[in-house]
Every structure is written in C-alpha cells, then in structure tokens.
Design a protein around this nucleic acid. Structure first.
Lengths: 240, 240
DNA sequence: AGCATAGGCATACACCGTAAGCCTGTCAAC
DNA sequence: GTTGACAGGCTTACGGTGTATGCCTATGCT
C-alpha cells in the first residue's frame, strides 16, 4: 500500500515537503547536468523529488514545459557584469560569463538545438537585453547592433559547443566511446588518433598535437579578441 | 503469415531490392530532414525502407551507429571549393559551403550537440582537412591554425544554429508554438512580440524590427568578414 | 543434393510520455 | 462539528521507443 495511507493518529507524519515547480525544475536541471539530457525523463525527475511521475503534471503542463523551465533556470544563472566601465570590457566579461553558463550546463546547448523555439519568459530575456544595451552604449546603431549581437552570440555558442562536444578534437570523450569496439564498418576508435593515414589527411595529422594541447580558454579569448577588435574598429570608423 | 512465405513457383517474386547500410542511412537522413530528429526511430526508418525494425540490425550495430551514419552522410555532402585562388577567397567559400550543408540538414546540429562524440570515419574528416589546408596555405603556423579553425568552425555552427533555431528572434517558428496556449506560467505566445514590456527590456523592444528584418545571409557575411579581416591582419603582421 | 549462412521476421522486455480516474489531507462555509 | 470543494498526491493503462533472442527462408557454395 502506498505511503500516506497510514492509520489516523499514527505518530510520525510523512513530512515530505510540498512539491513545487521550482523544486521539480531544479531537480531536472541537476539530472541534466549530472547524467545527460536523455536521462531527463518524467519518471526519473519524479524519483529525484521523491514522487510518482504523474504528480509532476500538477506543476508542469508537459515535458516541454519542464524543459522550458530548465532553459529559464539556466538563463537565470547568468550573472550580470558591472556596466560602469568601457563598453568593450563589459562586452568581454559578458561573453565570458555566457561561456561560463554554457559550460556549467553543457547539455542546454543540445536542448536549444533540437527544440528550436524562442525563449518566452521575460526573465530569460534579460541577458539578451543586457547584451543589446552594451552594444548600443558603444554607439552602434540598432541595425548593426542586431548583427553584432547575433555574431557574438553565435560565436560563443558555437565555440562552446565544439569545446564540450569535442566533435573534431579526436582525443577527448574517450569514456563515451570506449565500449563501442568495431563490429561493423568502423575504426577501432581506441587508437583512432594514431592510425590516421598521414598521406590522406596530412594537415590533420600535423595539427594533432596542437588540437590536443589547445587550451579552451586561450581558444575562446583568441576568437573573442578577433571579433571585438573588428567591432571596435567599426565604432571608431563611424562614431555615433 | 509474413511476406516471402509464398508458395514455391508462385509467379511474381517480392522483388524487394536488397537492404544495405547505405539505403538505411539515406532513408534515416531523409526522415531527419523532413520530419525532425525525434522522428528518426528504428521502426520509422524500417518502414521507410519497407522492412521490419529488427532487420536494420543486420546492417547497423545499433541506433548510435545509424546516427553516426547520418553524420557521415552529411559530411559527404560538403562540396570542396576550388582552391586555385587566394586563400581568403577559398576560406570564404568554404565557410559558405559549410553553412549551406548545415542549413540543408539543420537537425544535424542537434545531433552533434547531444551526442558529443568526435567523428571517426575518415571521409567525414575531409572537410576538416580542407579547412586546415587552406589556413596553412595562408602562411599561418600550425598552432594558430588550430585556433583559427576552431574559431571559424564555432562561428559558423553557432550562427547557423541561431539562424535555424530562432532562439531569440521572437518572430519566427510560429508553427511549432501555435498550439501551446497559456495553461501554466506562460505568456500567450501568439502576441508575444507586442506585449514585451518596454520599460523592462527597452533595448529588445527597440531592436525588434531589426531582429525581424535581419537577413540571415547578410548576417553571416557580416560576421565572416569580421573574422576573416581579423585573421588576415594577423597574417600580414607576421608573414611566414 | 546438401548444407552454411545472410538476412529477413515475430516475440518479448523494459522504459518512455501522458490520459483518465481514484484517494486523501486541508480548509472554508455553514 | 459537518460538509463539500479542491489541491495534490497515486494507480492503471495505452501506444510509443530501442533491442535481445530466436525462428524461418532464400541464396550460394561444394
């Protein structure tokens, strides 16, 4: 018989604290961060908060809604840099902070990528508002400001995605791949790096040590400098 | 009783052509492009090629392997630009081509994002080889070449992701959102754009017309110019 | 002709999201 | 106090998923 079905007057109450949307979303986010996106199921989240799956539906409309909640929670994690400085410093810190958020919740990129729908909650839009404000204060007109916003935003997301996804880096994410030994048409994976044929992909082979040694922070700062320098040169060329 | 269980000597044979890994992958890619990533299930793919789900397992190890096949097929779609030109033109065309591929198969970004494992098939690495070769021919040393490769690659992926995902653009992807009217804590969605409170997000409100009107091609070229100009300035500053 | 094998198929299991409905503890109105 | 509404848990059930296991047949080699 289920809990809560105790006789009346029984001494100790169940004492489970009330379920709330926030508790649910928080648990789901934790699961996503710890166990990956596909581990986030209604049953798994329910178990995490000590409840049956269907009970969640009193607090979230459906799974989509729960995922929306996760997105909002991630956006809420953005800590706004102090803006009382030259715009370019604020922009740089904002970009770094966005990268920090994405790296702290790397699976949120996949979440955005396959749901493909815009944020709707006001609170989630505040980082965007911040970015546009910084750009505007640099004296850039609104039209170009949108271009720059998208370029910077895309750059940050893409670089972090390559960083955490290791799509090309060839040395990382060994754990996920380890048990997949060749059965069909596949390289043995384990020694993938060593057996790249130099005559067919000489540039990759030559670049391998640098790919392996590449520091993600330096990587990011390099690209950010490139973009910000380009943007700044446009500002001084056409001052407001 | 199943098909193929006909009496011997029956006039018309089933005539189904042999199942191959390529046919399966091709069908899966088509489904992903037409119906989205979540539509790609073993049963759905099997139906597409006129077979039962379990028959696929004679040609792919598991679903992961099938998804690997999709990734490889997408990479095979990359058409290499003519390289007998100044490196910066080749680089520009390579970037455009990569964007074309990603836009033709927009769901592959989500696929990369949540699988997070490197490409292993040699053929899939040829576009990377191409990119590194172009960068190297610009006279950039290998270490910095890797930085530039990652920056450009990340930029392209991120910008296309924002482009197709419409994460912030607020005007698009109406169809996917239309039937989700407010039940829980949610804005009505339909009139989302109009009801953004100007006092709380003035910069977004001001930017909205430009967000809506922003031409993705111009957007991409803008960012690409910014990056390539920055890269070129480093080349002339420190010639090989 | 006999037989191995490749490549189909059917069944079964555990897990998924969620519709429908039930049960109980809380609380306001009388 | 009793009553009734209701919020918020729970159970069951249905159709979907990936895939392990095993069967059956058509093909090709000897």
């Amino acid at each position: 018989m289920p809990a809560g079905n105790r006789k009346i007057g029984e001494p100790e109450a169940p004492v489970r604290e009330r379920l709330t949307r926030d508790r649910i979303v928080e648990a789901a986010l934790r699961i996503m961060d710890d166990e990956g996106l596909e581990a986030v199921s209604m049953r798994r989240v329910a178990r995490e908060v000590g409840v049956e799956a269907m009970s969640l539906y009193h607090h979230v409309r459906d799974k989509e809604d729960l995922l929306d909640g996760i997105c909002a929670a991630v956006m809420r994690d953005f800590r706004f840099p102090n803006e009382d400085r030259p715009w370019i410093e604020v922009a740089r810190d904002g970009a770094r902070e966005w990268r920090r958020v994405l790296r702290d919740h790397p699976n949120v990129i996949a979440l955005w990528a396959d749901r493909q729908r815009p944020m709707t909650e006001l609170e989630s839009l505040m980082p965007m508002e911040f970015a546009l404000r910084v750009i505007q204060r640099a004296g850039i007109d609104e039209r170009e400001g949108v271009l720059i916003f998208n370029v910077l935003g895309g750059f940050i997301m893409g670089v972090v995605m390559m960083e955490v996804g290791a799509m090309f880096s060839a040395g990382t994410s060994r754990a996920k791949v380890a048990d997949r030994n060749a059965v069909h048409s596949k390289l043995p994976d384990e020694a993938f790096v060593q057996f790249l044929p130099e005559d067919q992909v000489p540039c990759i082979v030559a670049a391998l040590p640098h790919l392996a040694a590449c520091d993600p922070d330096e990587q990011f700062e390099f690209g950010l400098d490139l973009l910000l320098a380009g943007i700044e040169s446009r500002v001084v060329a056409a001052p407001a």
